[in-house]
Design a binder for these strands. Sequence first.
DNA 1: ATAAAATATCACCACATGCTGATATACTGA
DNA 2: TCAGTATATCAGCATGTGGTGATATTTTAT
Lengths: 114, 114
Amino acid sequence: MLMTPGIKIDTLKAKLFRGFADPSRLGILEALRYGPLTVGEIVAATGLSQPNASNHLSCLADCGLVLREPRGRFVSYRLTDERVAALLALAEELLGEVAKGVYECVHYNPTEGE
Amino acid sequence: MLMTPGIKIDTLKAKLFRGFADPSRLGILEALRYGPLTVGEIVAATGLSQPNASNHLSCLADCGLVLREPRGRFVSYRLTDERVAALLALAEELLGEVAKGVYECVHYNPTEGE
DNA sequence: ATAAAATATCACCACATGCTGATATACTGA
DNA sequence: TCAGTATATCAGCATGTGGTGATATTTTAT
């Protein structure tokens, strides 16, 4: 693939990971893991507000993690590639090992329920 | 594994991904992919400032992605688990598929070289 | 044609995040 | 002990980020 010079590959990879690195987006990806869903279904599944979900979905679609499929008045989204699900699965495995550390990690603390 | 109620699993997973989702941290992880390095070597390999590298390393260590091993006056870091490297590899594969989308993604644009 | 429903977009705000420069701490060798 | 090197920490700043409420757009049904 042709790569514009000046854009480091790590920057791209970091952007890719960023798609997974937010609880809301991750929730969407997890929900889509079991099949395509419409925006409304995603809203219901994740508890996100409709504008918020829509915004994250745009982000995920732009970044190539999900596919947008308009179906009449609805819009269906699904994971672009099995590798997206594979990444989620692998992260889950890894989380089993390091969960304690992640839990205690001080450097990033979104208001976590409590 | 015992999980404190009130902390959603997705929040943890998102925090885990966040370790990979910054160009500086990702650069560090990539550098460590080929073996343990001291802080000084990491600074040299990544071009980060020393305080900045040290700070990201603390974050990565807290989150369980890297191991801290003091060796006299030096501190050696290495990846905690092969799965960390596996995640990097899988992301690389996925990037091959979606690179174009990630490149064009508007929703996250750190000052990218130019 | 009009109303209602599904989705997207916009302006705005609060906050987290990453970076830098300065400084503190820890260890080693002479 | 003292100087030098390696690493960690701190205060402060600039900016990216995610969230909300209001509104626009598109599509279907009557």
